[in-house]
Write a protein that binds this DNA or RNA. Structure first.
Lengths: 213, 213, 213, 213
DNA sequence: TATGAATGAGGCTTCATTCAT
DNA sequence: CATGAATGAAGCCTCATTCAT
């Protein structure tokens, strides 16, 4: 059982028995459901426990706090989808545009699939320092990754050399993730997924000066 | 004397006397200060009143609730700065790029000036339905305005005709406002204001396919 | 200007000028209206003042407290109608039944006319010691008066001699006033005024053993 | 953690464990004691909890509000004593008078036993709509029951046929309950219980025209 | 006298977390 | 491990009354 220290998901105790593992899992699902339904602030431990069909006290057998439960829930989603990653393969392919398009398509699909959870993260990072920092760390990580890809494209003459790679990386990332948030969490507008993919990809490529193949 | 629910309180009325106007103003400043310092959720009426140097109850002479006070605070900032507006003059000028640059420069300056307040709005729109809607309405309004400007540029052959004006407008708007949020509210990165202006303008123009004059 | 000490209607100050007298009167009407509309507890000084078209502070120019205003309002009604009085002439007339009928008719009419106020008195005597005592004093006074009338009828062989005059007086008084309360304040049932008069009179006479003339 | 309005609290649920049942019972007794001592309006949750020896918050484990607690307290007393019921057997017995006397004796005894609670009901029905309606419903129910008994007596020639049974039922009921209120709640007069029973029974029988056996 | 702003004590209610069973 | 009852700190809001103009 590897210690889960990467995120502040300090559970109350690691489940020992098989029954324990099952109960923890049930609670985790319940927590996600209630968090998504009510938001983090409004979610009550009692409701989570009720939803899981256990007593309120049992919650603390597996999670040290409401925050810890949220951290555990957020772990499920994983890091890769939390920002539009330019595939690390970007620089290695002949056609950057289709790589970017694929990345955006994958990102938007994942965002949509986890829309409630993404909204939850958005909310909680406004309210809890711990999660705000988690969010910033991730933003930074993805920004750096994309910045490297952009720099590489610039070196190869495939991107506008006048752009600061770092700023540009964050900017196009922000554009995509924010649109995804508006569309899938706030249900803003009625654009189809494909329309979003096409438009964002074109804007992205235009912005970075990536030539259409 | 126990509190009473029977009738709507006549609280939050507009001040009649000059003294009243003065107190209301003091309270408004105090509210803004406390909101910015502690965030909306953590802000306590008592603190606002104390900061204003009045009794706790006096708060309710001018504001019906914490929400009402926040709404009043937010009104101060006004609508124009809440999203990067393409100047309506954009289509009428010879040089769209410098218009966009000026708009971005103005927007970022305003954002920076009101950074704490913008962060506050971000927070509260994650927590209070009323403000979420306010936010969405504004997003919509500015999106429509910018969409019209983009469409006009497209008609004049000055913007990429393949773009959906509406989506594109929201996307570039999101890009700029999000970067402003990261930089000025989250203190992310260390880019200078001017670097932001230059990079964002260039990204924006690239993205929309606006030719450099 | 006779001192009003009979009831605890200690006004803040006796009006001196004609204007003062007018304002006090307006406030009194307003107080009655608001008390009747909202009840004593829910009534707010601010509302009374607003209803009277004066500032809140002005209320205290004429009334020392909310209770004092109520006392002043209640004075308007006067003592005579607060319990069904057997006319003092009862013993002197040839036909007690028609005297009783007339008394009941008058009482019920007065009760109906002042229904809201009677309900108010009922409420406030449950909530304020001062008014509870006022109410009891009145009950006692009317009981004694009626008890004397009943005793007189007994002496003349016109009433059941087995009855305790005092208890009987209170009992029939309670019967009439309670029915009036149910009918006119609680809007209980749909009996006509005349039906009430007839039935109550008959019950009253039967109860006391007064022979039908 | 600020209070939350979002969802209905799951407060006031029925106890599951024996310990819970015990605590609820303790709180119920405490509530009754405090209500009777201070009246409903002046009673404070803190006092009830203190009297029960539990934390203030524990009150809400079993009662959703002060009103709910009062409702629970009032349930204890039950319906049968809230108005003088003519025994349903009245029409079937040979001697209506002794039936009435027994009913009045029982009623007055019960009233006296629960005097504080009856006063409480009187108070609260002046202040809370919910309890006013409870009161009226009960009045109506008992009125109808007694009305049927009176009608039956009239058919058998044992009651004054000129009386409206419904009005008469309410009137004699009001007489008895009001006297009980005056005597036992307001401590008005000094009549002995037996004197009340005798006088009220005689008045009642006289009023309805029930012949002395 | 009139105004209307300022005062401030006071009580309900919530719910994360603990703990005895 | 599970249960579910108990805890108790914390904050909003009201409104009768006072008081400076």
């Amino acid at each position: 059982m590897p210690p889960r220290q990467a995120l502040p998901a300090q559970t109350g105790r690691a489940p020992v028995s098989a029954r324990g593992a099952r109960t923890r899992d049930t609670l985790l699902r319940a927590a996600r459901a209630v968090f998504e339904r009510d938001g983090f602030l409004a979610a009550r431990i009692v409701d989570i426990a009720a939803q899981a069909g256990v007593a309120a006290g049992s919650f603390y057998t597996y999670f040290a706090s409401k925050e810890a439960a949220l951290a555990a829930v957020l772990e499920q989603v994983g890091d890769e989808m939390l920002h539009p990653p330019l595939s690390p393969a970007l620089a290695d392919r002949d056609d950057p545009v289709s790589v970017i398009e694929a990345a955006n398509r994958a990102y938007l699909a994942a965002y949509r699939r986890n829309a409630e959870l993404m909204g939850l993260l958005e909310q909680v990072s406004q309210v809890d320092e711990q999660f705000r920092e988690l969010r910033l760390r991730r933003t930074r990580a993805f920004g750096e990754r994309n910045a490297r890809a952009i720099a590489s494209l610039q070196e190869r003459g495939l991107a506008d050399p006048a752009l600061d790679p770092d700023l540009a990386a964050h900017a196009v990332g922000a554009m995509v993730s924010r649109i995804a948030y508006l569309r899938y969490v706030q249900h803003f507008g009625d654009a189809s997924n494909e329309a979003l993919v096409q438009t964002l990809t074109r804007l992205w490529c235009n912005a970075l000066g990536i030539p259409r193949s």
